[in-house]
Design a protein around this nucleic acid. Structure first.
Length: 730
DNA sequence: AGCACGCCGACT
DNA sequence: GTCGGCGTGCTC
């Protein structure tokens, strides 16, 4: 019998819901391994794909098959286990396998670069280099001076931060012999011995013991610890135990929580170099760290969302810190939840996973109460004061000037008198969220979105926070010609200005995206706060993540009501989490903190729970509401979104989608509806919610529905995407 | 998504 | 007379 040459199933980076079959490369006789990259002809071009499997028959006629052009890897870049997880994820999230694999691979590998780990480029000044000789080349001069000031040389990334034209500068400098380029391994050795940590309290010890007892088998632990209860110490102790067994540890943190301080703490306490993975890394540095993990040369990986896909052959423990954080859910393209995939990965690898939070998500709480998660509680704060007292300020009865009520001002004044810091939290950047004509009341709106423009005073601009559009405030009202306008409402910028007026001697530091956009600016602002160079902090939710402010004894929540009655069913949960997170930043053993919340709805059950520091009663309230309304975690959702530059076509597509769905058993398909903000960035958006009380019928339905959607005539005129387990309804 | 093919309007 | 607009079809 003649030997049939094998066929290879290849995932190709394209939004097509299937793999593609190829013949083996011309002269090779060796079998290709799944997970290896191959260069294949695809349509009229060539692309880098990933071998999924060998097969003996193709899905299409044999004449249609083309040959793999080139094999890029002898060893798979994605190990079997990870490939299987990704294939599962592609099915679960109903996303094309090629794009799923692309999301898991570092750009370096996607671009077809060699699999061997690159070093990190380091530039050094040569002895005797003379910046004086560079009078007419200021960029070169700046680079050279920076290099001369740095004894150990500088990495490409540091230079890039210095000047965007650094590449153009190093070239001539190198030719003149003023600077030299070297490579170093991306993770330099860590030479300090591990620092001992504090003695664990009873609860922490119990938590660590429970996790360690479960090593070598799957278990999901929900570590519910109030802020300041020492969750990180539990992670560290569990990580040490895993390391002692020769296993690797994967730690996921929210986007904004991955700070140099956190990395340094892990390195110090574990006594080893930690591989860091986050979006701000350059291609080479990122791939290098990834590769170190894949070769088990580094034991600990600390990363954001996409780090859940890091290959780690000896993985023995996964930690998901702040598991409730929305940044674990990817909001475009392949819309996965890194937290959920971490749990799944742990189950498949038969290892424990720890989900930690002071304010766990309702999903995880329900899983702990009724599902298989084990709850580990840390009710005590360590080394910090008792939880700060929370007081509601009933804004129905209080006058507020520029958003600040009298009691809040008094409380700030007291802190100033005592030399303590105050923190004002307000989830709205800019000066004022509305700009209106004094005469006719016309409000400035965005032309591309269904949204009001926010007035930014420093830049004297009206800015749309949804599409980024900017314009100059009009001299005269376009509707009535009146020449006077009014900025209505408060953003962080206005609060900052108001504070400067009321407390002229106070040093106010603002922390929001507008201030911290520049690289390193956030770090600078925080350093000022910690050095005691600030009396009052004003900021958005950026303040609620990852940074502690031990000298802050007053937290003011300026407008707590946004999100209380929002279109998004998760908004109250987010609000509660944000307030508790920011409240948890305040106070110390010797200086108890106080939290003042300005609200027009002081009777809301959310606030009752907040005043009592009773997350449990909030959970009961929120869970019973979700049960009554049939929302997660008491149901499972999929949201079909569509958008089009033409009004109406998105809804039209959804109506056709609804019609093609039929009446599947056990699944409820809602009516198509315009999105809560129908027009955004010039596109009309609509959505269609699909709901079920159990996953099985929902996914059985989606399996049939998605191919049908692709075939719809209307699908061509819109951009559509399916969001399984959506994080929000916008 | 790319990329090409294909058939109708304003320009060197 | 062409350059180029984006509708439509295909990718093993």
């Amino acid at each position: 019998m003649p030997e049939q040459s094998p066929i290879y199933r290849v995932a190709v980076p394209s939004p097509l819901y299937s793999h593609f079959d190829y013949l083996p490369p011309a002269q090779s006789r060796e079998k290709l391994v799944p997970g290896a990259r191959v260069r294949v002809p695809f349509g009229r071009r060539a692309v880098i794909g990933i071998v999924l499997a060998a097969a003996d028959r193709a899905a299409v006629a044999r004449e249609k098959l083309r040959r793999i052009e080139r094999v890029l890897d002898e060893q798979p870049v994605l190990p079997q286990k990870l490939l299987a997880l990704l294939a599962w994820a592609a099915e679960y999230y109903h996303h094309p396998i090629g794009e799923v694999l692309a999301a898991a691979l570092p750009q370096w590998l996607r671009a077809g670069r060699p699999g061997e780990a690159p070093g990190v480029e380091v530039w050094r000044a040569a002895p005797g280099a003379d910046p004086g000789a560079l009078k007419r080349a200021p960029a070169q001069r700046r680079v050279l001076e920076a290099l001369m000031a740095a004894s150990d040389g500088l990495e490409a990334e540091t230079l890039a931060a210095l000047t965007p034209r650094w590449r153009a500068a190093t070239g001539p400098l190198e030719r003149r012999g003023f600077v030299a380029r070297t490579q170093r391994p991306c993770l330099p050795p860590y030479r300090e011995p591990a620092e001992p940590g504090p003695t664990l309290n009873e609860d922490q010890r119990a938590a660590v013991e429970a996790i360690v007892a479960g090593f070598d088998s799957y278990g999901c632990f929900l570590l519910h610890g109030v802020t300041g209860s020492g969750k990180t110490e539990v992670y560290l102790a569990a990580a040490r135990a895993a390391l002692a067994r020769g296993r690797q540890v994967l730690v996921l943190v929210p986007e904004i929580g991955l700070t140099p301080q956190l990395v340094a703490r892990f390195e110090r306490r574990l006594g080893l170099r930690v591989a860091v993975l986050h979006s701000g890394l350059g291609d080479a540095a990122r791939y290098c760290a990834w590769r170190q993990a894949a070769e088990a040369r580094t034991a600990v990986v600390l990363g954001t969302r996409s780090a859940v896909f890091t290959p780690m052959p000896d993985l023995g423990l996964i930690v998901v810190d702040e598991e409730h954080d929305p940044s674990y859910k990817q909001q475009d393209g392949f819309r996965y939840s890194a937290r959920d995939l971490a749990v799944l990965r742990a189950a498949r690898e038969r290892i424990p996973v720890v989900l930690g939070s002071a304010t766990p998500s309702l999903e995880s709480v329900r899983n702990a109460r009724e599902g298989g998660y084990r709850l580990l509680g840390l009710p005590e704060r360590t080394g910090v004061a008792a939880l700060p007292a929370v007081r509601l300020l009933d804004m129905r009865r209080l006058a507020a000037d520029e958003g600040l009520s009298h009691p809040l001002r008094t409380a700030i004044a007291e802190r100033l008198a005592r030399g303590e810091q105050s923190l004002l939290f307000l989830n709205r950047r800019g000066f004022a969220p509305a700009w209106l004509c004094r005469d006719c009341g016309r409000v400035a709106v965005c032309h591309r979105c269904d949204a009001r423009l926010t007035y930014h005073h420093a830049r004297r601009r009206l800015i749309c926070h949804h599409c980024g559009a900017e314009e100059r405030p009009p001299e005269a009202c376009p509707a009535c010609g009146a020449r006077e306008a009014r900025a209505l409402g408060e953003g962080t910028e206005r609060i900052e200005a108001a504070l400067a007026k009321v407390f002229p001697k106070a040093r106010v530091v603002r922390i929001d995206r507008d201030v911290t956009r520049r690289q390193g600016a956030l770090e600078e602002q925080l350093a000022r706060v910690h050095a005691g160079e600030a009396d009052i902090l004003v900021g958005t939710q950026m303040l609620s993540k990852g940074h502690d402010f031990p000298n802050v004894t007053l937290v003011g929540v300026v407008n707590a009501d946004q999100g209380l009655y929002s279109a998004d069913f998760r908004a109250p949960e987010r609000l509660m989490q944000q307030i508790l997170q920011v409240a948890g930043r305040a106070g110390r053993a010797d200086k108890p903190g106080e939290v003042l919340v300005q609200t027009w709805h002081p009777g809301h059950p959310l606030f009752t729970a907040l005043v009592n520091h009773d997350y449990e009663s909030f959970l009961s309230y929120a869970l019973s509401e979700r049960r009554d309304t049939g929302f997660p975690p008491y149901s499972f959702l999929a949201l079909l979104r569509a958008e089009s530059p033409k009004n109406g076509t998105a809804l039209e597509f959804l109506r056709a989608a609804r019609a093609s769905a039929g009446a599947p058993a056990g699944v409820e398909i809602m009516e198509p509806a315009p999105a809560p903000m129908e027009k955004r960035a010039g596109r009309w958006r609509a959505q269609l919610l699909v709901q079920s009380t159990s996953r099985k019928p929902l996914h059985a339905f989606l399996d049939r529905w998605v191919p049908a959607l692709t075939a719809l005539r209307q699908a061509r005129q819109v951009r559509w995407s399916l969001d399984v387990d959506p994080g929000d309804m916008y």
